[in-house]
Nucleic acid binder design. Structure first.
Length: 158
DNA sequence: GCCAACGTTGGC
DNA sequence: GCCAACGTTGGC
């Protein structure tokens, strides 16, 4: 799941512990959250539009079928005048904090990593803020994280 | 239903 | 700041 750290970073997630993935206004990304994600799934927390972009931490899906309240808020930049309370258009997931990486895994490192050649994130023109990761890619990335001296010990309590 | 224009994303 | 890629919009 991608986010701009200026808007919401892994440090923010560490502080609040659980956060809904609001503001996604792309049907493909919404469908991934709505149809593909399950409680307990691991999340790679990616920082975009920053220097350097890359995987900044780990999360876990805490709850699915979460109504994105920003669609009903006229003051929100994510307000959707066409959204219907009775049948909400924008559904997201709650993401729980798991860990902040001691060292961010930069996009450039992902690009050169064997085993990630077909990763969605690395495809040209890929802009989806929510993307699937295969089990094999996930395993490769966890290895990279371990090698880079691992996730910090600031784990979420409970 | 087509498609050009436009807006947004996001790496570089 | 540039620009490629892609989604959305709206006229027809």
């Amino acid at each position: 799941m991608k986010t701009e750290p200026e808007t919401f970073s892994i440090d923010d997630l560490a502080r609040v512990k659980v956060e809904p993935g609001t503001g996604v206004r792309n049907y493909q990304a919404r469908n991934l959250m709505r149809d593909q994600m399950q409680v307990g799934d691991d999340v790679l927390f990616y920082h975009s539009s920053c220097e350097p972009p890359g995987i900044a931490g780990l999360g876990r899906i805490e709850r699915t079928g979460v109504v994105d309240e920003t669609q009903f808020d006229p003051r929100s930049k994510y307000f959707d005048p066409g959204a219907d309370r009775a049948d909400p258009r924008w559904i997201c997931v709650d993401v729980a904090f798991v860990a902040k990486l001691r060292e961010l895994i930069p996009l450039a490192a992902l690009r050169t990593q064997p085993g990630l050649e077909d990763m969605a994130l690395l495809r040209r023109g890929m802009r989806l803020s929510v993307q699937p990761v295969t089990a094999a890619e996930h395993a490769v990335i966890l290895k990279m994280i371990k090698k880079a001296s691992g996730a910090s010990r600031t784990r979420a309590r409970s």
